[in-house]
Computed example of a mutant assay.
Amino acid sequence: MVTTPRVPKDADLRRADSLAREIFSDIANKWALLIIDVLGKRTMRFSELRKEVEGVSHKMLTQNLRTLERDGLVHREVYPTVPPRVEYRLTEPGLGLLTACDAICAWTQQNYTYINSARARFDT
C-alpha cells in the first residue's frame, strides 16, 4: 500500500482558504507572469517594465509589483537620488518561478496555431 504524505491545510491548493491558493492566485495572472518573464532578463525601472509589458496600465503594474514584492518574488530597490530611482529585480524564488513561466510562455507559442484553429471551429 502506497501512502501519500499529508499536505498541511494551508499548503493545499484545493482549499479555498489556504495560503497556497492565495499565493497561486498572486502569480497565476497574465500580468504577474509577464512581469516575471520580463524581469527574468534584467533589473528594470518601472517605466522600462511598462514599455516591455505592452498593454499593462500604470495601476495594474503597480498592484502586481507590490504583490510580487510582498510575496518575496521581486525585490524593489530605491536609490536616494532626486528624483528617486527605483529598480526591480527577481529574487531567488522569483528566478525559480521564471523556469515555470518560461515553460508556460513556450507552451503558449507552441500551441498557438492549434488553439487558434480550435477557437475558430468553436465559434462557428
Results as ranks from 00 to 15, higher is better:
residue 101 C to E: 02
residue 17 D to P: 03
residue 44 M to H: 00
residue 112 Y to G: 00
residue 107 W to A: 13
residue 33 L to I: 08
residue 69 E to V: 10
residue 61 L to N: 01
residue 6 R to V: 10
residue 83 P to T: 05
residue 122 F to N: 12
residue 85 R to P: 00
residue 7 V to I: 15
residue 121 R to H: 14
residue 92 E to W: 08
residue 82 V to D: 13
residue 30 K to P: 04
residue 31 W to D: 15
residue 46 F to N: 00
residue 21 R to H: 11
residue 111 N to Q: 11
residue 123 D to P: 00
residue 57 S to N: 05
residue 20 A to M: 15
residue 84 P to S: 11
residue 85 R to N: 03
residue 88 Y to T: 01
residue 50 R to K: 15
residue 119 R to N: 12
residue 102 D to V: 00
residue 35 I to L: 15
residue 40 G to S: 04
residue 40 G to C: 02
residue 67 T to R: 14
residue 23 I to E: 07
residue 9 K to H: 08
residue 45 R to E: 10
residue 81 T to V: 11
residue 29 N to K: 09
residue 36 I to D: 02
residue 45 R to T: 06
residue 121 R to S: 08
residue 30 K to I: 12
residue 29 N to T: 13
residue 22 E to I: 12
residue 57 S to R: 06
residue 84 P to K: 10
residue 2 V to K: 14
residue 62 T to P: 00
residue 81 T to R: 06
residue 22 E to H: 07
residue 66 R to N: 14
residue 56 V to P: 01
residue 15 R to A: 08
residue 85 R to K: 12
residue 31 W to E: 15
residue 39 L to H: 00
residue 18 S to T: 04
residue 56 V to Q: 05
residue 45 R to L: 03
residue 9 K to S: 11
residue 97 L to T: 07
residue 95 L to H: 09
residue 55 G to A: 07
residue 10 D to I: 06
residue 94 G to M: 11
residue 88 Y to I: 01
residue 62 T to E: 13
